[in-house]
Computed example of a mutant assay.
Amino acid sequence: MVQTDNLTFHYKKAEHTFRFPNIALKEQEHLLILGKSGIGKTTLLHLLAGLLKPASGALVIDEVAINSLSHSELDKFRGQNIGLVFQKSHAVRSLNVLDNLKARLFFSKKSINHTIIDSLLEQLDLTETKKKQINELSEGQLQRLGIAMAVVHNPQVILADEPTSNLDDENCMAVLQLLQQQAGKNRANLIVITHDIRIKSAFKNVITL
């Protein structure tokens, strides 16, 4: 469950204050947030992830008011309950695919279950890459690894930042389906922030900033 109320954010030395629409998602409901560059999409994603603290307003995830948590409490909550899919790979280059997933579980304070990892790699067509180094992966494999790293710890919320904007139509829908499938398996909320209007029809809930 994700709920926001009157969220605002103000960057230092900036005149403009971002004001965001309220969000109310029940369990397993998904949301698409559309908007052009500079409108505040990434700022909103960082607020939802607890990476930024709002100037005002409330943010509740799974009945926890996260902007009232201490830094250590927030780090722990984010690590255990939020999965982030970035535009660019954040995998550790010195580790192979398997060790990146194990590291994600370690930092989330979740037990390492090789059966679950192997199942996830199979679902994302990454089994053959299990022992490969990051620089040996194709762009498509890197993108699927990013999804795996975002969901391996079974988060309550999956946040995806422009996951399809640089893809052709076929790969755009394939990545979206993977995100929706993994959210379904985790019983998680999926929130996609993008300017890519091609995926609008795939979402029941849509907000345009």
Rank of each mutant, 00 (worst) to 15 (best):
I134T: 01
K130A: 08
L142R: 11
Q87D: 03
G79E: 09
V97E: 03
L167S: 01
R93K: 15
Q80L: 13
I134N: 01
A150N: 02
Q143F: 01
K130V: 12
E128G: 14
G83H: 07
K110M: 11
N166H: 15
A103S: 10
S94G: 04
S165A: 14
L121Y: 00
C172N: 11
F86N: 11
L95K: 07
I112E: 10
D75N: 14
F86S: 12
N100Q: 05
A174P: 13
E136C: 07
S108D: 08
F106Y: 15
A150D: 06
K130M: 07
E139W: 13
G83D: 08
N81F: 08
L142E: 05
K130N: 02
L84A: 00
T164W: 10
N100M: 10
L142I: 03
N166E: 11
L120T: 00
F107T: 12
L98S: 11
R144D: 08
N135M: 09
V85T: 05
A91P: 04
K88L: 07
N135F: 13
L167V: 01
S94A: 07
F106I: 13
F86C: 09
F106D: 13
Q156R: 14
F86P: 10
L120M: 06
L137W: 03
F77Q: 05
D169R: 13
L167W: 06
D168S: 04
N154E: 15
A174V: 09
M173F: 15
N135V: 11
I147K: 01
N135I: 12
L84Q: 06
F86D: 02
D168Y: 06
L105F: 07
S89Q: 04
L145A: 01
A150V: 07
K88N: 10
N100D: 04
E128I: 08
S165D: 11
K131S: 12
K76G: 08
E122I: 10
